[in-house]
Write a protein that binds this DNA or RNA. Structure first.
Lengths: 224, 224
DNA sequence: TATTATATGATAGTAATACTATTATATGCA
DNA sequence: TGCATATAATAGTATTACTATCATATAATA
């Protein structure tokens, strides 16, 4: 299902950027080419110098949008979680069955966002989420960044999914733990399937990942 | 329970290091101080220059042991997984009950290795595993490194735990997926509890993490 | 229309990083 | 005694991760 997206604007906290990249041509180029270049050479080898050269601008200009490459990564991951949230709301709107809602969520998280986004290539963004997004919080500055709300979009997704699960079993005590385990799990399994296959069980079925985690969640929250 | 450790020697594949750090005083200093310094300033800010200065040696000498800091991180994580393997074998030796074996494993993974290791401070090593170990595989070179066996020790742990679970239910199809989800899950939850508490459910019970994942595994593999 | 604010470009510079190379010295073993 | 090996001392290079300054172009505003 494709959506018309004129309505989508990501809700990203200001402290992530110096200057809003979505309000200028150069800004959107930084996002678009940044996304591609990180995917191509990896976050460690990625530099603002290389990015500037590819865009045809200068390093100094890139620094006017983002303090450093880590903040750009944070922006990209936040942008991704905004899309996830948007899709969850779209697909679960008017749905009463919480189990169906949960299934939808797992499918959304398990593959690239299906949308014609004018700013970012969503296939590439998903690739970066799998490969690089953990690095957005596995840093010494995590507490400082968290204090000013830079992980807001991720935390919101965990809250939304937790609420769905609590509709299935309101008494389950460890929802947040379960949800963050599953989100990280899905993304990690995709990485393992591609690179360290003995850590997973690749399967020909299209939907095996969402199905596996759906089963895992339902079994875990069941009272017995 | 403390063990006498004269018997422990890590089984780490040669390609991780240039020169075996356990065969010289400088080598063990690199491991010991490297472990501490990574924990102190974080892997991104950590450099061989700083490490050399703290040890009182030169950058060039550190490079004789490890090609780069990423290989040192890989060494430290492999060292950790060797200890985990050793402890699993010790504690599960002569145990027939697979459920009891599984519980032991989850407890071992959920806290620092309890051992007087003469080379590395295990509390600090565990801290680094939580905060940095994902970075040992989330790199562009993962396939290349995997080809020469640099993830051997991690993969072996997943295989060992998978075998235990298969003793409980030999028909379960997704053991490796479940096991790597749980291992990553436990370590991530510790990180979240410390830094992003809304992504987890901290609890006063001492053993809530291993208990939660024990329940999760048992529920998931149950036939119904 | 003139004024001014804002965005970008062009250029330069600096301290630190991630190495490599060379030469000298010390220690251990045959 | 000679030889191999390990480390120290020193130097050097390209790249990274920024910061600063000044010029120019464009847009908004008075």
């Amino acid at each position: 299902m494709h959506l018309t997206l004129s309505s989508f604007t990501p809700n990203i906290v200001h402290d992530i950027y110096v200057k809003n990249p979505l309000q200028s041509t150069l800004g959107t180029e930084i996002l678009r080419v940044g996304n591609e270049l990180i995917a191509e050479i990896g976050f460690e080898a990625f530099t603002f110098k290389k990015l500037a050269t590819q865009i045809g601008t200068t390093e100094a200009s890139v620094y006017r949008y983002f303090e450093n490459k880590h903040k750009l990564l944070l922006y990209l991951t936040s942008y991704y979680w905004c899309w996830v949230e948007y899709h969850i709301l779209m697909r679960n709107n008017n749905l009463l069955d919480a189990c169906r809602q949960l299934k939808n969520v797992l499918e959304i998280i398990g593959r690239p966002i299906k949308a014609d986004d004018k700013n970012l290539n969503q296939e590439i963004l998903f690739y970066n989420i799998i490969n690089e997004s953990s690095k957005s919080y596995l840093v010494k500055s995590v507490d400082e960044l968290n204090k000013v709300g830079l992980y807001f979009n991720y935390k919101k997704i965990v809250a939304i999914i937790s609420d769905i699960i609590l509709k299935i079993n309101p008494d389950f005590k460890y929802v947040h733990m379960l949800v963050s385990t599953v989100i990280e799990g899905i993304h990690h399994q995709i990485f393992f399937a591609n690179h360290l296959p003995s850590l997973t069980d690749t399967d020909t079925e299209e939907n095996y990942l969402p199905d596996f985690y759906y089963h895992l969640i339902l079994s875990t929250i069941k009272n017995d």
